[in-house]
């Protein structure tokens, strides 16, 4: 739900990074945080366990500049990836404007990817939303690891609709901003459509 403040001339959008446990959602946000000028971002809030696993969410507010005289603010959230945190995962999707599915490219995580993507569909449906109707991109992360699936294999199992997709190594930043830019673009196009 894009939040438009006509008095302050601001647009606020919510992007949620979804995906199986340890796929690199937090790493995406951490890289964006590290590489963005402090004047363009707020604090990164991480509600994590003692072992640095996301417990509830990570949150990073970003300012991208002006569009048509409006300041654009993106609120980036990650969900906890571990299967048993489903109740909290669902809550984070409330008010979503765009989704990034971060897939783990490793062969051993093929089932976990599919399960998480199904879970995203189910949880979105609870808010009356469908993945093919909202701004949505997919990121194939960990491309630098040895035993990974080919992009064709990943595409066949996770991206049959051909949404924008990006290869990434979130730990060194490869593909991270490309992914963010793509989902932001789709959010603005949606805003344009609805404002017409």
């Amino acid at each position: 739900m894009t939040f438009i403040n006509l008095m302050a001339r601001e647009i606020n959008c919510k992007i949620v990074y979804y995906g199986p446990g340890l796929c690199g959602k937090t790493t995406n946000l951490q890289f964006i945080f590290d590489k963005t000028k402090p004047t363009s971002r707020g604090k990164m809030v991480s509600l994590a366990t003692e072992t640095d696993r996301t417990l509830f969410f990570d949150f990073l507010p970003l300012e991208l500049g002006e569009i048509r005289g409006f300041k654009t603010r993106f609120h980036l959230y990650t969900v906890p990836g571990q299967v048993f945190y489903d109740a909290s995962r669902k809550l984070i999707l409330k008010g979503i404007d765009g989704a990034v599915f971060v897939a783990d490219s490793q062969i051993a995580r093929a089932d976990a990817n599919e399960e998480s993507l199904d879970n995203l569909r189910v949880n979105l449906a609870e808010y009356g939303l469908a993945l093919d109707k909202i701004p949505y991109v997919i990121q194939y992360n960990k491309r630098d690891l040895p035993s990974v699936m080919s992009v064709e294999e990943l595409r066949a199992s996770l991206n049959p609709d051909g949404v924008p997709e990006f290869e990434a190594v979130a730990s060194d930043g490869t593909g991270v901003f490309e992914t963010l830019k793509a989902v932001a673009r789709l959010v603005f196009l949606e805003l344009k459509k609805s404002g017409a």
């Binding site: 894009t2 438009i4 647009i11 991208l64 500049g65 569009i67 048509r68 005289g69 409006f70 654009t72 901003f177 830019k181 932001a184 673009r185 603005f188 196009l189 805003l191 344009k192 609805s194 404002g195 017409a196």
Partner: peptide, 18 residues
């Protein structure tokens, strides 16, 4: 008309943000 200010967003506007 609530969001009508954005009906004219162009690809260029979006590119400029990045």
């Amino acid at each position: 008309g609530g969001g009508s200010a954005f009906a004219e967003i162009t690809d260029e506007d979006i590119d400029n943000l990045f």
